[in-house]
Amino acid sequence: MSNHTGDLTISQPPGCTENTVTNETPPAPIASTKGLNADLVFKGVTAAFAFSILVILALMALEMVKESLPTIKAFGWEFINSSDWNPVQDTFGALPYIWGSVVSSILALALATPLSVGTALFITEIAPRKFGGVVASLVELLAAIPSVIYGLWGVLVMAPWLQQTVQPFLIEHFGFLPFFQGAPYGVSMLAAVFILMIMVIPIITSITKEVLLAVPQSQREAAIALGATRWEMIRMAVLPYGRSGILGAVILGLGRAIGETMAVTMVIGNTPQISLSLLSPAYTMPSVIANEFAETTSKLHASALMEIGLILLAVTLVINVMARLLLWGMTRQAAGGAK
């Protein structure tokens, strides 16, 4: 009833208005229906846009499943269990790509996590506030650089450096280990691990920073008042309070690393092999899609790449949901603890 324009009633003398309202009920509803209609249309339009996101997501999953069906039918579980990827003979096994994705992401995360948490702790607990803010902004800049530029730097600057200095050093001193055997190619699993590490650090750092800022000051004071040093305060009060949030940040970083395409494609060497050596080239799931999808040789080839995409989608969905739940739990705890 608040929505009708009311021009009619206002322009009429008071007596008439009363008549309109009491005796001739129809006009008022018509006026308000008119306003309501426009509002209904507005609601409909915005709803259509809002719900289109659900449709897009559903369509995405549906298309991926539909297009993957040929290889799912042809190979079944063998698809993720076999290393034989031969588009010419139409046999497809995705194991080397899965291996490459898993190993590169996990190692990158193992390196990135301590560095990121350390940096976040430096920003929130150690540095003077202004300086911490500057470091945080710099780290956010790192997040804004596009993947292809990381790749450019990786392939033209980092890979040659690895090839000339780091890898020969590793071969000479640690060559007895299976992880550092073979020739120094530059482009390699090691290069992918490094570039992924650099790329996920800003994500983990900035989310961890937010998580740490959500730890109530009273927790820090409690530890300090017990005679804790700053590190003991962090270990006793800050990290336990933020642990689920930090875990969420790390998992979100994992999601980013697994789906990362361009930079990895440019530095990993794109060779489908399963090798323990970090010095040898490898391949990842997004990379094989990037390299082969535009030029598939057969229906089955396209389907195989689609199935890799489907696996990737499923994994990233699970990872993102997990991370959201953990971060959500953290914010709820912070809200509850403030009571």
Binding site: T261, P286, L312, N320
Partner: peptide
């Protein structure tokens, strides 16, 4: 959707 890899 924001977490879906862009290649997908």
């Amino acid at each position: 959707l924001a977490g879906v890899p862009s290649i997908i």
